[in-house]
Simulated assay, not measured.
Amino acid sequence: MRPVDRFSPNRRQVLSMAAAVAAPAILPAHVLAQDKFPSKPITLIAPWPAGGSSDGVMRAFAESAGKVLGTTVVVENKPGAGGTMGAAAMVNARPDGYLLTQLPLGIYRLPHMQKMSFDPVADLTHIVCLTGYTFGIACTADAPFKTIQEMVAFAKANPGKLEYGHTGTGTTPHLAIEEFSGKAGIQLNPIPFKGSAEIMQAILGGHIRVMSGTTEFAPHVQSGKLRLLATLGSQRNKAFPNVPTLKESGWDTIVESPFGIGGPKGMDPAVVKVLHDAFRKTLEDPKVQETLDKFYMPSIYMSTADYTAYAERTFKAEKATIERLGLAKKS
């Protein structure tokens, strides 16, 4: 009889080795299933109070993107600090794509005005730009002026007595009116609020006469409760064709404000692409378009590369604006 080679495998050993060889073919699928993005809910920060136009738009984007991504996108409101709370939250966040934020224009401006915890270019991933605000100056229906020219005349006759509400010190509605006031030679009394919803409560309640903000004023203008004096864009708003812009009224102040979705720095490009594609597709969603139309916001799409370049340009441009207005932080 031939002696058994002690190094020759028996049947059980052969099966074990075969299983071991097969294991690597099984493991990658298991690992990929675990690593597939997204595999859990995503949080999207809206840096404004609940109930305002910004909150409504972000919730529409979140719901639509969640359907595309196959997960829930939960909106978390973090109001205050001129809309920069979302960007600040990205500094210590894991760059895994599960915490995102709206990126309003103020994040490129406020770091030039005061010490902030983030650098809007170096500390953020700009994923996709989606839309933008339309700004305007509105007043109560019983205000003692009916046009922007009459408001200027009233302010000149009553220096520092005409109050106006805005969305926070250093935000676009605030700086737009400060620039306009300087060019018009008037002194207004600015009253900061945490967001558009609070401003609307104040002006509809008769606590302030004038507001500078987004088009959340629109339905109240249409109902006759408020009067729209001017819009701040480069062209008249199609919803209010009879309302002049500040520029055509004689004061060269133009304010337009694109915004989109961002995350922490260092995100995996593959995850960024998944998020970019999902949020871009939301612009094709009829419910999203209905919400944008409701708040008179246009579709303003920028790819990841274009949005990143926009951020770099805007950060530099805002620095120049802040220095021109004498609002730069002390070094």
Rank of each mutant, 00 (worst) to 15 (best):
Arg209Met: 09
Arg209Lys: 09
Arg209Pro: 00
Val210Arg: 04
Val210Phe: 04
Met211Tyr: 03
Met211Ile: 14
Met211Val: 13
Ser212Trp: 02
Gly213Pro: 04
Thr214Pro: 00
Thr215Asp: 11
Glu216Tyr: 04
Glu216Trp: 00
Glu216Ala: 13
Phe217Pro: 01
Ala218Tyr: 12
His220Arg: 10
His220Asn: 14
Val221Lys: 00
Gln222Arg: 15
Gln222Asp: 13
Ser223His: 08
Ser223Gly: 11
Lys225Ala: 15
Lys225Leu: 14
Leu226Arg: 03
Leu226Met: 11
Arg227Ala: 10
Leu228Arg: 04
Leu228Ile: 10
Leu229Glu: 05
Ala230Ile: 03
Thr231Phe: 04
Leu232Gly: 03
Gly233Val: 02
Gly233Glu: 07
Ser234Arg: 13
Arg236Leu: 01
Asn237Asp: 14
Lys238Gln: 15
Ala239Phe: 12
Pro241Trp: 04
Pro241Lys: 13
Asn242Ser: 13
Asn242Val: 05
Val243His: 08
Val243Met: 12
Thr245Met: 13
Leu246Glu: 01
Glu248Pro: 06
Glu248Gln: 10
Glu248Asn: 08
Ser249Phe: 00
Ser249Gly: 08
Gly250His: 01
Trp251Thr: 06
Thr253Gly: 00
Thr253Arg: 08
Ile254Leu: 03
Ile254Pro: 02
Val255Cys: 08
Glu256Trp: 01
Ser257Gln: 12
Pro258Arg: 08
Phe259Arg: 02
Ile261Pro: 10
Gly262Asn: 12
Gly263Ile: 03
Lys265Asn: 08
Lys265Gln: 12
Gly266Glu: 15
Met267His: 05
Asp268Lys: 03
Asp268Ser: 02
Pro269Thr: 12
Pro269Ser: 11
Val271Ser: 12
Val272His: 10
Lys273Asp: 09
Lys273Gln: 14
Lys273Phe: 03
Val274Thr: 15
Val274Ser: 10
Leu275Val: 10
His276Trp: 09
His276Asn: 14
Ala278Met: 07
Ala278Ile: 05
Ala278Trp: 02
Arg280Tyr: 13
Lys281Phe: 05
Thr282Gln: 05
Glu284Trp: 00
Pro286Trp: 06
Pro286Thr: 08
Lys287Asp: 09
Val288Lys: 07
Gln289Val: 10
Gln289Ser: 08
Gln289Asp: 11
Glu290Arg: 07
Glu290Ser: 10
Thr291Glu: 12
Thr291Pro: 00
Leu292Thr: 02
Leu292Trp: 03
Leu292Met: 07
Leu292Gly: 04
Asp293Ala: 14
Lys294Glu: 07
Lys294Asp: 02
Phe295Tyr: 15
Phe295Trp: 15
Tyr296Lys: 12
Met297Lys: 01
Met297Phe: 06
Ser299Gln: 09
Ile300Glu: 10
Ile300Lys: 06
Tyr301Asp: 11
Met302Pro: 03
Thr304Lys: 06
Thr304Ala: 12
Ala305Gln: 15
Ala305Glu: 15
Ala305Asp: 15
Asp306Ile: 13
Tyr307Ser: 03
Tyr307Trp: 14
Thr308Met: 07
